[in-house]
Amino acid sequence: MCSQASNQQKQMKSHLLGKWISGIAFTFFIALLGFLLAQVPGFDRVGQLACAIIIAIMYRQFFGYPEVLRSGITFSSKILLRLAIILYGLKLNMHTVFQDGLGLLVRDAVVILFAIVVMIWLGKAFKADKNISLLLGVGTGVCGAAAIAAVAPIMKTKDEDTAISVGIIALMGTVFAIGYTLIEPFLPLTSTDYGIWSGLSLHELAHVAIAAEPAGEDALAMALLAKLGRVFLLVPLCFILIYWMKYKNKGNQTHHTIAFPWFLLGFILMSLLGSYVLGDTIPIPENTLENISAATTWILTAAMVGLGLNISLKDLRSKALKPLLAITLTSFFLSVMAYFMI
């Protein structure tokens, strides 16, 4: 009897492990479909992340949520999301920020504060969802989807709200990046000033690169430097949000305590490792960091697929329109303000 029970337990564990692995594999499969869709002309401007989220949302609407794979999908949307944020730290070169970008940090801080305040204000004016408005404010001010993914656990937002916010930020960043490239030849700016403007005002690193690259290497270098300063400020912003959430819920006995986001320490550690150790103290092949960056994109995409599968189009229609209008205006005002900050 004991042997039979033991075998049944082993079979059950094996069955659960299989569903867990299948769920993770499913999110990476949709990430692959997003990658392939992003190769199609037109969709290449949208990017793999947004394409994968769109496919995940459409799958949910036509086939429903794959309950049998829930454990693996949840792992992707929770654990892999944090892993992606940790690896994202390698994109931040602290040495460059401290050496050349200190003068930009003040302007970066102003940009972040402006984006959050204006987005929340417009969100209230349009009666948009408060959590989505704050997520979009952080994403607009800091570094798009990565910033949203970092602050969402702190704010304890719903998965569907996080996914909606990521989808909107990807769309808006793409539209503005393309718009920048179209108007760049007509602006009375040097390539360096144009790069700073792009880095100060656009949403994600990818959007900054898209907009600045046509203006030359100097423009791209300054754009990325300005953008890295905003990424650097993500960590203190997260701790400010932790304090704010605790203060906001002080005395609320029904609210859970705010868990410390340990993955942020991993983000800082990876930033220090990439800035001062890898390549200097420890020689590594030139393409290693590029491969890690590519892996980070895939992991983040799979995580966002897990979030996208939680979205119903009914919620999307009811929740996304007002925040979309608010972020459009916020992004426009931010672009104008950043232009005059150069």
Score class of each variant (00 low, 15 high):
residue 136 L to R: 05
residue 163 A to Q: 11
residue 47 G to W: 06
residue 334 L to H: 05
residue 88 Y to N: 05
residue 299 I to R: 08
residue 223 A to V: 15
residue 144 G to E: 10
residue 109 A to R: 12
residue 333 F to L: 01
residue 99 Q to Y: 14
residue 31 A to I: 02
residue 327 I to W: 01
residue 213 E to A: 06
residue 183 I to F: 07
residue 274 G to T: 15
residue 194 Y to H: 01
residue 226 A to V: 02
residue 224 L to P: 06
residue 227 K to C: 08
residue 161 D to S: 05
residue 192 T to A: 00
residue 227 K to V: 09
residue 54 I to A: 11
residue 295 A to H: 13
residue 58 M to Y: 08
residue 290 E to F: 11
residue 197 W to F: 13
residue 22 S to A: 12
residue 156 K to W: 02
residue 291 N to S: 12
residue 31 A to R: 00
residue 125 A to Y: 05
residue 89 G to Y: 06
residue 144 G to R: 09
residue 303 A to M: 08
residue 193 D to Y: 09
residue 296 T to D: 02
residue 82 R to V: 07
residue 163 A to I: 14
residue 32 L to D: 05
residue 139 G to L: 05
residue 254 T to C: 00
residue 137 G to I: 08
residue 140 T to D: 03
residue 111 V to M: 09
residue 212 A to I: 14
residue 268 I to E: 03
residue 238 C to M: 09
residue 8 Q to K: 10
residue 125 A to N: 09
residue 23 G to V: 11
residue 114 F to C: 11
residue 67 E to L: 03
residue 139 G to V: 07
residue 102 L to I: 14
residue 59 Y to N: 15
residue 213 E to Q: 05
residue 226 A to D: 01
residue 257 T to D: 03
residue 342 I to P: 07
residue 161 D to I: 06
residue 224 L to F: 08
residue 282 I to W: 13
residue 36 L to A: 15
residue 122 L to S: 09
residue 249 N to T: 01
residue 122 L to P: 05
residue 336 V to P: 06
residue 190 T to W: 01
residue 105 L to T: 06
residue 137 G to A: 07
residue 204 E to W: 08
residue 42 G to D: 08
residue 119 M to W: 00
residue 71 S to F: 04
residue 191 S to M: 08
residue 45 R to W: 13
residue 167 G to C: 13
residue 222 M to Y: 04
residue 136 L to A: 10
residue 251 G to P: 15
residue 115 A to R: 10
residue 220 L to V: 10
residue 127 K to G: 08
residue 169 I to V: 14
residue 114 F to T: 07
residue 152 A to C: 12
residue 86 I to V: 10
residue 180 Y to N: 04
residue 214 P to E: 03
residue 239 F to E: 13
residue 172 M to P: 02
residue 321 L to V: 13
residue 196 I to T: 03
residue 273 L to G: 09
residue 336 V to H: 07
residue 137 G to D: 06
residue 129 D to F: 04
residue 42 G to H: 06
residue 152 A to K: 10
residue 187 L to P: 10
residue 24 I to C: 03
residue 2 C to H: 11
residue 170 A to K: 14
residue 6 S to H: 04
residue 153 P to W: 09
residue 177 A to P: 00
residue 248 K to P: 00
residue 237 L to D: 02
residue 283 P to T: 06
residue 224 L to Y: 07
residue 286 E to N: 06
residue 251 G to H: 15
residue 231 V to D: 05
residue 95 H to L: 15
residue 147 A to W: 06
residue 317 R to K: 10
residue 335 S to P: 00
residue 202 L to G: 05
residue 171 L to S: 07
residue 149 A to G: 10
residue 224 L to W: 08
residue 165 S to E: 04
residue 318 S to D: 03
residue 252 N to S: 15
residue 126 F to W: 13
residue 325 L to P: 01
residue 182 L to G: 10
residue 211 A to P: 13
residue 180 Y to S: 03
residue 200 L to A: 15
residue 260 F to I: 02
residue 51 C to Q: 04
residue 67 E to I: 09
residue 283 P to V: 03
residue 202 L to E: 03
